[in-house]
Write a protein that binds this DNA or RNA. Structure first.
Lengths: 214, 214
DNA sequence: TAGATTGTTAATCGATTAACAATC
DNA sequence: TAGATTGTTAATCGATTAACAATC
């Protein structure tokens, strides 16, 4: 009998990985406890926000003591679902696809890129950073046979839209979308967008208003 | 005598590039006007929000008619500061740096990647997608001589922190930070972070809660 | 125990949505 | 003109901050 879960806001989810990163750094510096007040100074947020955020998931601290760094780090890891391995494929073996394949930071966090896929038959069979390029025809069977949960899409817009539709009846649970388009998927699939074009537009806007305003 | 500017919230800036993208698509489909109501259905947001957002910058619509697509597209382009060219350098000629160099979408929006930089002397002089790798020693003079406004950092954490400090007394106005760390820069420099590790952690969280919850 | 600091409730602030008069 | 739709004010909703009793 599950207790009805409180709805966690997007803003909180946005902050959790940053908490996790700072805790990881504290941990590697040998710090073993921290108060919400000290943590707030380090991160540039309010202590209230830290305590409110964490208390959505449980009481991880102790009055008069603060938070145990290692424990909190692990708890947030569990919350984020990175206490286990996630198998990933990258569809689109262009520059970005290859860059993802070669990015070792993901591996450290349990995100394992198992294969690249590309429709270009001249690329098929080649290997980047130890990851082999497969033909599109193998997509469905590869996902099923290798317990793949996440597909990163590093293909052009039109291809991404098409792939979203193909992936909906495979075992894929999450799409990491690098194409500059919104994807239509059933509720059972989660989409996380990385829209670099939008990111650089925001940079441009902020540069502009920084110089004009304050 | 400038009128005191209303503070524009982060949430609005987050949405502007998406409006811009949809307007660009409507434009290429030959649509020449749209009401906030139709636009809201297309984008999956409320019509109220669209009107409120836009009215922070001016009255771009017309009662009884709606918005002229081409006009609104151009106005938002101006707001975002992409009605002109921005010169960019990419520091770190690894996989991601090369991927950025080869990504033609930026060029279309006026973001011109002029040079790559790397500390590895064996890479210096090589060219990717027509963009040459320069040695770090040339960084300052290159920025000054080529009117560079934005530096994309595709280097490891420690190098990014160091570079942020080097860049602060050059003409650089914006840092596009791909390293998984926060950067300390003076107020005159804007930082836009692309933290892929945090992005994939959010994907993981959402996959987890999707399967548990609703 | 006394001091520190959490967990949590209450107050504030800001962002989103609704409503409607103005106007094309 | 009548109908449509904006710009904008007011109402609601949600997120952040402040305060403090609980407790280690």
């Amino acid at each position: 009998m599950e207790q009805k879960e409180k709805k966690i806001s997007k803003a909180i989810i946005q902050r959790l990985p940053r908490y996790y990163r700072y805790l990881g750094e504290l941990l590697s510096q040998g710090v073993d406890r921290i108060s919400s007040s000290d943590f707030s100074k380090l991160m540039g947020v309010t202590a209230s926000q830290i305590r409110q955020d964490l208390n959505n998931f449980g009481g991880f601290g102790q009055q008069g003591y603060g938070y145990n760094v290692k424990n909190l780090y692990e708890e947030i890891g569990k919350i984020l679902g990175i206490d286990r391995v996630h198998n990933i494929i990258v569809i689109g073996a262009g520059n970005f696809g290859k860059a993802l394949a070669g990015y070792s930071d993901f591996e450290k966090r349990g995100f394992r890129i198992k294969a690249l896929f590309d429709k270009d038959s001249t690329k098929v069979g080649k290997t980047y950073s130890g990851i082999t390029i497969h033909p599109m025809e193998e997509l469905r069977t590869y996902i099923a046979d290798n317990n793949i949960e996440i597909a990163a899409l590093t293909v052009p817009k039109a291809a991404a839209i098409e792939l979203a539709s193909v992936l909906k009846d495979t075992g894929i649970k999450g799409i990491w979308n690098f194409a500059h388009t919104d994807l239509n998927v059933p509720d059972s699939i989660v989409v996380e967008n990385v829209h670099l074009s939008e990111s650089i537009m925001r940079l441009s806007y902020n540069m502009k208003s920084r110089n004009a305003g304050s």
